[in-house]
Amino acid sequence: MKKRKIPMRKDLITNTMMPKKELVRIVVDKEKNIFVDPTGKKAGRGAYVSLEPEKIQQAKKRRVLENSLGIKISDEFYDELYAYVEHQRARKELFGDK
């Protein structure tokens, strides 16, 4: 059987290439709205960050997303992102890798 290619993306926080499934995409649309893109397919400028809560705290402290996406990001968005990542990690532990 032929092996499938695994799409790789760069994690903004650690600056390393990782499989796309292990990252979450953050998108800024034309109206400068920022949101989490669980599908990875929404239109707009995107950036990938790790699905580890500790890394999200680092991103908040260093303001990595602001530098990459070129907009001001509120602390509330970082809190929302942290909650999303916590939820995804809990799902992974509960249901395993899919």
Rank of each mutant, 00 (worst) to 15 (best):
K2P: 12
K2L: 12
K3D: 11
K3Y: 09
R4M: 10
K5N: 13
K5Y: 10
I6N: 09
I6H: 01
I6W: 03
P7D: 06
M8Y: 08
R9V: 07
K10E: 14
K10M: 15
K10T: 15
D11E: 04
D11M: 06
L12F: 08
T14D: 07
N15E: 15
N15S: 13
T16C: 06
M17V: 05
M18A: 13
P19H: 02
K20D: 06
K21E: 14
E22V: 07
E22F: 10
V24P: 00
V24S: 03
V24Q: 04
V27D: 02
V27H: 02
D29K: 12
K30S: 15
K32A: 08
I34T: 03
F35N: 07
V36D: 00
V36L: 09
D37N: 05
P38Y: 08
G40H: 08
K41F: 03
K41C: 01
K42Q: 14
A43E: 14
A43Q: 11
A43C: 00
A43G: 08
G44L: 05
G44V: 02
R45M: 05
V49F: 04
S50T: 07
S50M: 08
L51P: 02
L51K: 15
E52Y: 06
P53S: 13
P53D: 11
E54I: 06
E54R: 14
K55L: 09
I56H: 05
Q57K: 14
Q58Y: 01
A59M: 11
A59W: 00
K60P: 01
R62F: 10
R62E: 14
E66L: 07
E66D: 03
N67W: 01
S68W: 00
L69D: 10
L69E: 10
G70M: 12
I71N: 11
I71C: 09
I71W: 08
I71G: 07
K72W: 04
E76G: 00
E80W: 01
Y82M: 09
A83K: 14
A83S: 13
A83M: 09
Y84E: 09
Y84K: 02
Y84D: 04
V85S: 06
H87A: 12
H87P: 01
H87Q: 15
R89F: 03
A90K: 14
A90Q: 12
R91H: 11
K92E: 13
K92W: 10
E93A: 11
G96W: 06
D97H: 03
D97M: 02
K98P: 03
K98L: 12
